[in-house]
């Protein structure tokens, strides 16, 4: 049985694609056959973050419209074994996604023996986002410690519990995980940023991890490398912890405590 995981947030720019790439790569590193699908039709970017943009020939929409088969459209990742990317179309718009088409592709992927199907949702609450979450078994809700992101995440949580297949069919609810990204413990300590406790108090879903704000993410995307591959960095370690927790392991939170500034920094500022 393959498990479908949607990476969603409502708000744009919070780290959905970064997370989708690292989460999928992390699962593949653990030996699971994984595919990551870009649902952002018309504004594809997952291919760039995964570093496979020059190898896209056929895309998700081609497969939905049966202009290509899955074997032609799946792009094999060069970093890790057992990881595949299904790119979004760059030329069509979101109406090219049909619910029946999405369901058929997901079923076909399950038939190919994928353990995990990661759906990278577009921002917003329109067709693309609804399609990405519709068939999900679990959801990573990516949230920044910032008012508009928290509000949009709350809205998305409402949709996960009312508009998805599990909700409509009255089955067991989608398992929701809160992933806080761009977290800056120093600013939290100074009282200038919502703390992870604040965000949990408001959204009330279990926390699966905290990714610190870091220049690593930009360095990774510049190179087309999922951030989880940036060996030895806090971001990479934090994503690896997320994968372990997702797979049921206990991991204490790291990189969430403020660092004391050195004497020089205290005297002269940042």
């Amino acid at each position: 049985m393959s498990k479908i995981v949607v990476v969603t947030s409502g708000k744009g720019g919070v780290g959905k694609t970064t997370t989708s790439a690292s989460f999928a790569a992390g699962l593949a590193l653990k030996g699971f056959k994984t595919v990551v699908i870009d649902f952002d039709v018309g504004l594809r970017n997952l291919d760039l973050i995964m570093g496979c943009e020059r190898r896209v020939v056929y895309d998700f929409i081609n497969v939905i419209h049966q202009e290509a088969n899955l074997n032609q459209a799946l792009i094999k990742d060069k970093q890790c074994e057992g990881l595949y990317v299904l790119a979004a179309s760059q030329t069509r718009d979101k109406d090219a996604l049909s619910q029946e088409g999405v369901e058929r592709v997901l079923n076909d992927l399950a038939g190919m023996g994928f353990d995990y199907i990661v759906c990278d949702s577009p921002a917003g609450i329109e067709t693309g986002a609804l399609m990405a979450m519709h068939y999900a078994d679990e959801a990573l809700v990516v949230t920044n410690p910032e008012v508009s992101s928290v509000r949009d995440s709350d809205r998305i949580l409402g949709m996960l519990s009312s508009k998805t297949r599990r909700a409509i069919e009255g089955r067991e609810a989608i398992k929701e995980h809160l992933l806080i990204t761009r977290y800056n413990p120093n600013r939290v300590q100074e009282g200038q940023m919502l703390s992870l406790q604040d965000i949990q108090d408001i959204l009330r879903i279990p926390l699966i991890g905290v990714i610190p704000e870091s220049e690593t993410v930009l360095q990774a995307s510049n190179q087309g490398l999922p951030a989880v591959h940036m060996q030895g960095t806090e971001v990479s370690e934090a994503y690896k912890d997320v994968i372990e927790r997702f797979l049921g392991q206990e991991r204490t939170l790291r990189f969430v405590d403020a660092q004391k500034p050195s004497l020089l920094k205290r005297l002269f500022g940042r």
Partner: peptide
């Protein structure tokens, strides 16, 4: 924070305002 901010006053703590507004 730098020595200058000691003269200009601390930055306002706004996270609690954010939390209150969100909860409402």
């Amino acid at each position: 924070m730098s020595w200058l901010s000691l003269f200009l006053g601390e930055k306002k703590q706004t996270a609690s305002i954010a939390k209150d507004r969100l909860q409402i």
